[in-house]
Nucleic acid binder design. Structure first.
Lengths: 212, 212
DNA sequence: GTCTATACGATGATAGAC
DNA sequence: GTCTATCATCGTATAGAC
């Protein structure tokens, strides 16, 4: 097996186990065993457990953030062309929809976003900062766009409400099978996820647009 | 020292360290050392690390839930007397305000609620269920009250939006010093907490009241 | 360069002496 | 009730095989 194979198998195994058991509880022994690699392979290829998490996060989050950033830019460009202000719901949809669509992808990354949901509120500052550094540019971009959409609100208030939005969203993505309970289904269903996504978008849009 | 003293000192030390480092990362050795007790004392008095967390949660959460439950009942009683429907904002305020007021109390429990913020989304089902079992009655009570306040919405949709509310709130209580950054203050300030609390109440009230 | 085997200190937990 | 001794397991580091 080549180096690339081992690295990818380690990333896949780590992603799955971090998602199921959490960062602290998932042991390097369990991860390397699942990846059919030696215990020391994780340290050799990534440098440590923390660096392995960082690689797991970057692999999925960088493309996802690019996708969300592009969609926000599209909304802004369309508003500029039309000579109007961008709509809050369109901006929020650009931010939230790709995140949940990730879960329905067939490329084996369905478990990933529960990791970032927990990294966001981790008690470990190293884990938290790992995530925050990766989303900070996107967060700033969205904040700036929302300031254009909501000129009657102060940037500070929009920042606060964006923080609440991150919380509501983070809670939803912590549990891969959560969306189905909203419909009382026993088995997971792509429609449950879409139902939850649309309701979340409506909820936070109303919260962001609330009068001051 | 009496048994009671040791138990309380263990609870205090566990509360502080669980809050600062998280449940998994806070070691029993650090907790018992901080409590000036033997390593085995935690196992003797509580039965294990998980049971210690359970005791930490119950000590603060049962009185807090009683307080929140009473305030919800007061809102419902006042509405009945006035012959009107209860207001969403009043119900949400009854639920959220005591939670954040907890943080400003001087009895050394200021660190506590960050524990429940993380227990809510813990990857460990045992930890999560510990918290869920403690708040389930209160959650049902609030859901039922909101169904009275929002008769135009289905109970299922209200449940979904209450889930988002828990997420936004849980995110806020994960970080003891988070509220101050909204005002750009360098030092923590009770007014920052009140500012954040009021903005959170306005945000989730607007989200809950959003048209279907 | 890649990978394996192995050792080290620290952890949660428990049994049994006192 | 309290404490010591002990065990399996954790993340990490390193020496050496291929």
């Amino acid at each position: 097996m080549t180096q690339t194979d081992t690295k990818i198998r380690l990333l896949d195994a780590a992603e799955s186990l971090f998602s199921q058991q959490g960062f602290t509880s998932a042991s390097l022994r369990a991860i390397t065993t699942a990846a059919q690699a030696n215990l020391a392979a994780a340290n050799y290829h990534f440098g440590g457990k923390e660096a392995l998490l960082s690689a797991v996060l970057e692999r999925r989050l960088l493309p996802l953030n690019q996708q969300r950033s592009d969609r926000i830019d599209q909304v802004l460009a369309a508003a500029t062309t039309a000579g109007t202000r961008p709509e809050v719901e369109a901006l929020i949809r650009a931010f939230i929809e790709p995140t949940f669509a990730f879960r329905r992808d067939k490329n084996g990354s369905s478990e990933f976003i529960s990791i970032i949901g927990r990294a966001m509120t981790s008690a470990d500052p190293l884990v938290r900062d790992l995530f925050l550094a990766l989303v900070q540019p996107l967060f700033s971009q969205l904040h700036q766009a929302l300031c254009q959409a909501l000129p009657q609100l102060t940037p500070q208030l929009i920042f606060t409400r964006l923080f609440f939005t991150m919380g509501a969203m983070g809670h939803c993505i912590c549990f891969p099978g959560m969306s189905q309970i909203f419909n009382g289904n026993s088995a997971s269903n792509p429609e449950d996820d879409i139902f939850m996504t649309n309701n979340l978008i409506r909820f936070v849009t109303a919260g962001l647009e609330a009068p001051c």
